[in-house]
Structures are given as C-alpha cells and as structure tokens.
Design a protein around this nucleic acid. Sequence first.
DNA 1: TTATAAAACTTTAAGCTTGAAATAATTTCT
DNA 2: AGAAATTATTTCAAGCTTAAAGTTTTATAA
Lengths: 154, 154
Amino acid sequence: MVAGPTSAGPGKDRLRLWIRLLRASRTIEAELRERLKKEFDTTLPRFDVMAALYRVPEGMLMSDLSRFLLVSNGNVTGIVDRLVSEGLVTRARRNGDRRTSMVRLTEDGSKSFAAIAAAHEGWVGELLGTVSEDEARRLTGMLKSFRSNWEGRE
Amino acid sequence: MVAGPTSAGPGKDRLRLWIRLLRASRTIEAELRERLKKEFDTTLPRFDVMAALYRVPEGMLMSDLSRFLLVSNGNVTGIVDRLVSEGLVTRARRNGDRRTSMVRLTEDGSKSFAAIAAAHEGWVGELLGTVSEDEARRLTGMLKSFRSNWEGRE
DNA sequence: TTATAAAACTTTAAGCTTGAAATAATTTCT
DNA sequence: AGAAATTATTTCAAGCTTAAAGTTTTATAA
C-alpha cells in the first residue's frame, strides 16, 4: 500500500497520488500517536471518540459514533469500555429504547479533552507547517469533492 | 482524529486539511481492504509487504521492510511469518551476517502479487476517478513537498 | 583478547480493528 | 396478539500494531 507503482502506464498518476496520500497520513498519524502517548498517556482512537463526543454535549449512540468515526461497531464498544473504566465517559441507558445507550463525556473527560485538543491542534499546525493556509483550504476542497463521489454509494 | 476543529480561529485550516486527509485515506483504505479480502482473501499489510518485495527480486532485510513500510520491526516479523506459512515468501539465512535474513517473494508469491496488483491499480483508479490525471499530479507534488520538511528529522 | 557496545531480529503485552455470530429490544406484518 | 424481520449493541476469533524487553550475532575498543 505504501510502495510505488510496479510499472509505468496510464492511470499511474492516481496510484501515485494514493501512495503519497497514504504515506503522508501514516507519517503524520504516527507522529501524533507518539505524542499523545508521551504527553497525555492516551491513544488516537480514544482521542477520536472524545473529539466526537466533545461536539455533542447531549451524547451519541454507539452506532452514531461508529458511523461518524468510520470504524466498526465492535471497535467502538472496546474503546468506550476503556474510556468508561478511566472515568472519562459514561454510558447512560435510555428509557425510550432499551437497546441503546447514550455515551457522553464526563466533566473530567471534557476537561481532559480540551487540554489534549489544544496541544493536538498545535501539533497539526506544526506538522503541516509548510502548507500555507491558503493552500490548505484549496487542498481541503479537492479532498472534499473527490470523496463524496463514490463513498456512501450502494 | 476524524472530528472537525472544536472552534474557529487561526490555524484551523491546517487542522481541517488534516481531518480531510485522514478521512479520505481511511475511506479509501477501508474500501481497498474489503476488496482485497473478498476478491483475493488477503489483507492490506500482506499486500504492502509483497508490493515492497516485488520491486526487488534480490530481496530485502526485515529492517529494510520495516523502514520502507513505516511500520515497526515486530510488526513485519508477524506479517512475514504468515506470508512464509502461506508459501508466498521465503526467509533466507545469510552467510555474511547471521543476524539477518533475506526476504524474497517465491514464484507463487510473485505471480499472486502481479494479479492482485493489477486489480488494485484498477480500484485506485476507480476510487480516485474524480481527480483528473493532471490534478492528481499536482496534488502528489504538494503532498511530496510538505512531507519531506519535517519527517525523518531528529 | 575479551569486555562492551551496537545492530538485527523476535517475543511479549496491551490495545486496535474487522467481520461474523450472538443477544436483546423494538417494529412490522398478518 | 404472535411471528418474523429489523435495529442496536456486544462478543468473539483472527490479525494488525506499537513500544519495550529479550536474544543472538557482529563490531568496537581497552
């Protein structure tokens, strides 16, 4: 997935783009993961879940989290389990539908996340420092448009 | 890692870019993983290792693979173990330095990879279909330049 | 030479990830 | 109402991933 095209030819430019895209995100991801571990003793998946919940004080269902984060249901179960055991998140059974539970950040979780998110934003700014703000906006637009075309189709 | 900025402000554009980048690569990666599984009963990590080896008939050391693929040593050990047990790869002890071993594709592995790689390239072309070849080249250039600036530093 | 350090790998423990199977609760259909 | 399908979630097995610790071999140096 990270190696270059095995030969030249048409369509190779998109393959090259994909490889670049993947290497870039893996490299940045690795760096962020390492810093999250070192500075805050946490992980990317935990950070992801907390970031999702931070925007929605009323909480999210497990399936909302799963959809939003683009990961499987079972995956979210495990991560939330660990966050609960650390007191950063709660699972509240609901009256209306007893299959579901609302997942929310605790006060601790919220404070904790705010601190981590601030550092995180700084890191991303640093790691993407050579991309101008203007260029960043353009790239973002390109990525946004190409994604929506095929994803979520059936 | 996949949620948006928690507030507005300066530096947010790079954060937005990072989130787009990550969502894009996760979405594409998930699609490719699924197809590799369904069509060829293999995985992305196996494909990555085989792609790396395919370019180098004389083989690679474990540490070369690890460096090239941006993953840890122990990780490569496990993946190569499985590829060996499937007969797609061999580990050849070396006379010169008995700590190391050369990892090579077997003939089976090589044939198998060629078929998978052809399909893979088609998929990537399809998934990135809305990006023109020209745009792909420009994006690739941007990604290349911003990466090299901080990665591999000390 | 012989201790010491360095290098190349492997092993291990903990956690992440998926897809599939299992549970439980709710909805839909007849 | 009762059966059947759907929905929300958890559990499970297998595999991926890392960092850290351990092993073996090679290089360095006193």
